[in-house]
Design a protein around this nucleic acid. Structure first.
Lengths: 246, 246
DNA sequence: CGCTATTTTGAGCCGCGTCAATACGGGTGG
DNA sequence: CCACCCGTATTGACGCGGCTCAAAATAGCG
């Protein structure tokens, strides 16, 4: 078993207190828009979780809602198990993104979140966070902004009708989010198996395969197992919007 | 035609300042969990919009985000217009529900909201509301709760696969929300045309017709134009969950 | 009482899910 | 280094649900 790069025992107190101040993601994350003193107050309530591996859970559905989480590295998947025991994939989460926001209302997590590869996340104890938000208007505003952004991002899910549209929209969405976070917006490494993509898009895995194949044949993408290079993002973007292509 | 309960010309100042205190929906709405003094402070920033009619807009996509809105009576529809000029229905909003929550992040409304029948809504100027939230922890918590609830409610959209499942889930969702708000949970008056239902569920209007017909044939519902009576909610609930029926 | 929007009903077709078989790749042990 | 195994991914054949196109029935409205 490989050594985990961020295991909590290896963190000294000083490191622990510099979580947000030194994090390259702070511009995208909770601290955005706060001044130095405010970020340091935020630091004092944030912890970095130890490095997690494939299949490790950040939390599970039904867990009491103590914290929200900010992804630091790797990729997470959120999902539900329905009455028949089938998994339903809700979304994928990249560094800088928050998870657990849907748990504030009923005070319990509504979905489970699991690492798709080696990954880590910050832990933001919600009680302390919201107390701090009462003191710091900028923090309150940012939390509401992030909640609101989450709502906006969830809305367009149902829109695209055909398998090709959904796949194109999925790739473009992922590319955009990776690009916003400083990663390549054309060379994607999908951490999840086809089954998860299919489940997320409400398609069969076979359909995902076929559509990716077709995109490759069209010269729009280059597929090598879980590595996907976008050769013609415009074509994909066009497809995601309207259905006028073949 | 019944007198409109909330036309602004008929409201005197005292009435205007009693919006939340006297509102029967306050238990479901923003003031929930606040004490009397706090509700009165909230009162001071809330206005009741005048009565609106079919086709009147609460706001349109792109409008600067000045307020969020709480439905007082009637039903509203939120929608987007995509690049081809086609409408895409996002959701329907009942009394006690908030709309405009997705506009906090980019500071502009992301969708348009229009009255489906005679309807009215409260206007909550967001700047004043969030300032108040900094003072009143209970208010901050409630706003976050409502934002979080909105996220949770958006998640299951993509789940149901077949037309019958989606239709059943739609009816049950509407019935539940109406029931929570003191209306009948079995006698539904759909304010929207079939086209909107179809659009919302990503179905053809013909399919909506056929599915309603089938539900009626099964003895599960009774359809009289836009009035729908649920005769066997359990059957519908079962159908919405799994696909084991015919 | 005619006009128009909405809803319903019917016929035919196509996309995508299902089932089944094959190919690939990465890990393990000899 | 190769043989083997198993999970993931691909490819093909076929059937069905729901969309499209077309037309009739019904309701609301001037």
């Amino acid at each position: 078993m490989p050594a985990s790069p961020g295991q909590s025992s290896a963190l000294d107190l000083r490191e622990l207190k510099r979580v947000c101040s030194n994090c390259s993601l702070s511009e995208l994350c909770v601290p955005m828009g706060l001044n130095r003193a405010e970020v340091e107050r935020l630091d004092s309530v944030v912890e970095v979780s130890r490095s997690m591996h494939v299949g490790d859970h950040l939390f599970r559905r039904g867990d009491p809602m103590r914290s929200i989480y900010a992804v630091r590295s790797g990729m997470y998947k959120s999902y539900l198990i329905n009455e028949e025991g089938e998994e339903q994939v809700i979304g994928f989460h990249l560094p800088g993104e928050l998870v657990g926001l849907d748990a504030i209302y009923p005070d319990a997590h509504q979905c489970s979140v699991v690492a798709l590869d080696t990954a880590s996340a910050c832990v933001l104890p919600f009680a302390q966070l919201s107390e701090l938000a009462g003191d710091i208007p900028g923090l309150q505003r940012q939390i509401m902004r992030l909640l609101s952004k989450e709502i906006s991002s969830l809305v367009p899910r149902a829109a695209d009708s055909t398998a090709e549209q959904r796949m194109a929209a999925f790739l473009m969405d992922l590319a955009r989010r990776l690009g916003e976070r400083g990663y390549s917006a054309t060379d994607l490494r999908l951490a999840m198996p086809r089954k998860d993509i299919a489940n997320y898009l409400c398609l069969a895995t076979e359909t995902v395969s076929r559509v990716l194949k077709k995109f490759q044949t069209q010269g729009w993408i280059e597929v090598d197992r879980r590595d996907i290079r976008l050769l013609d993002p415009d074509a994909l973007g066009q497809l995601a919007k309207d259905d006028q292509s073949d």
